[in-house]
Amino acid sequence: MPEITLPTDHSTDPSLVIITNHLTKEFNGVAAVNEISLTVPRGKIFGFIGPSGCGKTTAVRLLVGTHQPTSGEVTVLGRAPQQFRRQDREKIGYMPQQFVLYPDLTVRQNLNFAASLYGLGWRERRASLVAMLELVELSEHAHKIARNISGGMQRRLSLASTMMHDPELLFLDEPTAGVDPILRNKFWDYFRTLREKGHTLFITTQYVNEAAYCDYVGVMANGRLLTVDTPAGLRHNAIGGDILLMQLDQPLPMEKFLALTDLPFVSGEINPVGDNTWRIVVEDASVALPELMEWTQTAALDVVSLREDQPSFDDVFLKLMQEEDRDN
């Protein structure tokens, strides 16, 4: 389980492309982003998950430099966004939440414009244009007016225009919002392709299940960063361990239930989930699974099935939110 740590000297670690330390942004005295501290390693997908209005977009704007922090520190590609030079901005791609391209221009003209903003010459643009149109599967629609293509195509066009200048670091603000599940999967395929090519992606999303596609996940609520972890680590920490599902061919007697709770590898609650099936929270599923099988045999219990269960990220997210509410 990889550990996300904050190095002592941020600027000297080239493996970290984003570093924030108590980053805060207030609007009229209200904190939209509240003391966020995180690091994002190079060549990874960092997912930023949280409910609508929790401060994800503000956080992205602080990272791309369109917003100035009220307090705290932020370093992106080794430099504070407020001090970005042109060369720094050329390494960054930013896809805002809404479709901000020009509806009266064709797909090709929009991509050309986006690339020109980054100073790409005609030859570079031409090469990149073909590649991007292919990547987002819009080659056949290149000459269509942007307003006449579907919403999904517009999102793909936005994504392609963000990538036209081949940025090192991509900030994608809810790229899959309002996109159908099939296209959403395609998007994540693109993102993985980009990661394989060495790009770093900072992606915000409302879809909790998309956390599973990220290398690291930051969970935000009410402007605060609740946790940063790998998807597996997030799940483990939220639930308090791994989950085993055990189905018996008969009801579990009380003395056996009590003996089960006393087992050393059981770290959390044991709850019935119906049809003689029990949900057991254990420290480590890989260790607990054989030991539990052995205990059932000793206890003369007939097991129909015994397996590890992966709780959905909805459950994980819900749990984290409940904890956040309780803390508040």
Binding site: Y102, L105, Q109, N112, F113, G119
Partner: peptide, 24 residues
Amino acid sequence: TNTLRAITRIWAFVSKEWAEVMHQ
């Protein structure tokens, strides 16, 4: 290179505005 890039960026707006008008 910087000058050429600046010209490219300026031209981006020129061609974009013209294209928008031509499409109307």
